[in-house]
Design a protein around this nucleic acid. Structure first.
Length: 400
DNA sequence: CCTCCACAGGAAGCGCAGGAGT
DNA sequence: ACTCCTGCGCTTCCTGTGGAGG
């Protein structure tokens, strides 16, 4: 008799108790080291329970610092409490990466309010009225806009949402904006800025100590008991902390390490698996950052990684030596050659500089102003990740 | 000291796509 | 269906800057 192909997979030994709990989507019920932010946010939102409009709130901090988790957590608690006490508070979460225009955000909100109806195709004004109708029933409405910097016409969205408050005598609309881009705030229309940022909260990165606690807590929930060595947790925390203090990377390390264990039939996560997971997670992070970049920007980054591999280092006139540092100008020249050889257009040097600034913002490269020993004013550019990996990944990306 | 270098980065404008208004 | 409008990606043009070199 032939064996069902799933039988073997199903019976396979695993170190996981519940694998879902170490995926990035999962929000744990307890958020360590964010008590202050939770309390502060709770205080701000509590006004809605008394039937008042709460201040709009803007959260920022790097990726994996718990912004989304805290926001979801507090809003959920608010809604739970509201239901229990029979109060008129309503909330909604929108990820603006998927809903990246005023219209799409409004559609998403209204669809959450009226799940059985479909508003796709209706005019923006109609959808907006629908939203106000809802608030007119005396609802205090809290909208969480995650990755709010991705909205194309953000000024108008914020304006529309806040304008609602003037037209309503009962009920209100409050906004919680989340962003990991600090610069973005300064590019906003001053009016938008002042209304969105009535209150602000900063989320600092976690340090190694804090990450260790977080991972310990997750490991206990997600893995079978005694399947994860404590030294492995320490290592994962240390690795994530020196990279960025990003809890998401730290958790991903644990997840991939566990998967590596399962694959080779081992029943214990040790330093060895974490080390191997590190390279895998790094690749995933690089790929997720790189794949959405414009083609020309990919060429620029590819050029930087190629040159980094070719050159051993720059000797300054002062005698000190630095590894893997490139001049802005030489990159642009090489970029033109590479783009040409791919029969691609070539961007102007001005726009190239713009791309360089963006790459720095994403943390893919580091730049420093040329100081003593270098003639003229230029930027010295250094890769933020392993050159070989970036070139390898980009090579595939550019090919298609 | 002045001049030149090798860029940085602001301002203005251009062509295009996609949405709103009619 | 048609114009009009607007944001976006990009170019062109330009002024600014810190140090090298004479």
């Amino acid at each position: 008799m032939q064996q069902n192909i799933f039988e073997k997979e199903f019976a396979k030994e695993t170190v996981f108790k519940d694998r879902n709990l170490v995926t990035p989507h999962y929000t744990p019920p307890i958020l360590p080291f964010r008590e202050r932010q939770i309390k502060e946010m709770g205080e701000i939102l509590s006004f809605s329970l008394k039937g008042k409009k709460t201040d709009n709130l803007f959260l920022y901090g790097k990726t994996g610092t718990g912004k989304t988790s805290v926001a979801k957590h507090v809003v959920q608690q608010l809604l739970d409490f509201s239901v229990k006490q029979n109060l008129n508070v309503e909330g909604c979460y929108v990820n603006c990466r998927n809903h990246n225009s005023k219209y799409r955000v409004l559609i998403k909100i209204v669809k959450d309010l009226y799940p059985e109806e479909n508003f796709l195709g209706f005019s923006a004004a109609f959808v907006y009225e629908k939203l106000l109708d809802y608030a007119r029933k005396g609802k205090e409405f809290v909208v969480v806009l995650d990755e709010v910097d991705k909205v194309k016409d953000l000024d108008e969205l914020i304006y529309s949402l806040t304008r609602g408050n003037d037209e309503l005598d009962k009920g209100s609309v409050s906004i919680i904006g989340i962003s990991n881009n600090l610069m973005f705030k300064d590019r906003l229309d001053p009016r938008t800025k002042s209304s969105l940022c009535e209150q602000e909260m900063v989320f600092p990165p976690y340090n190694a100590e804090e990450l260790r606690e977080i991972l310990k807590q997750r490991a206990e929930m997600a893995f079978k008991s005694r399947c994860v060595q404590s030294s492995a947790i320490n290592l994962a925390a240390a690795l994530a902390a020196q990279e960025s203090g990003d809890a998401r990377t730290a958790v991903m390390l644990l997840l991939r390490a566990g998967e590596i264990c399962d694959k080779k039939g081992s029943d214990k996560v040790t330093d060895e698996e974490v080390k191997r997971a590190k390279s895998k997670v790094e690749e995933e992070i690089i790929l997720s950052m790189i794949s959405t970049l414009p083609k020309q920007q990919q060429f620029v980054l590819y050029t930087i990684s190629s040159l980094t591999l070719q050159k051993k280092g720059v000797t300054r006139i002062t005698g000190e030596k630095e590894e893997g540092v490139l001049f802005s100008g030489e990159i642009y020249e090489e970029y033109q050659r590479i783009a040409k050889s791919h029969h691609s257009d070539i961007i102007s040097s001005r726009w190239y500089r713009q791309y360089i600034s963006e790459l720095e913002m994403y943390g893919l490269i580091f730049t420093t102003a040329s100081g003593k020993g270098i003639r003229g004013q230029t930027r010295l550019i250094k890769l933020g990740f392993d050159a070989k990996k970036i070139r390898e990944i980009l090579g595939k990306e550019i090919a298609n």
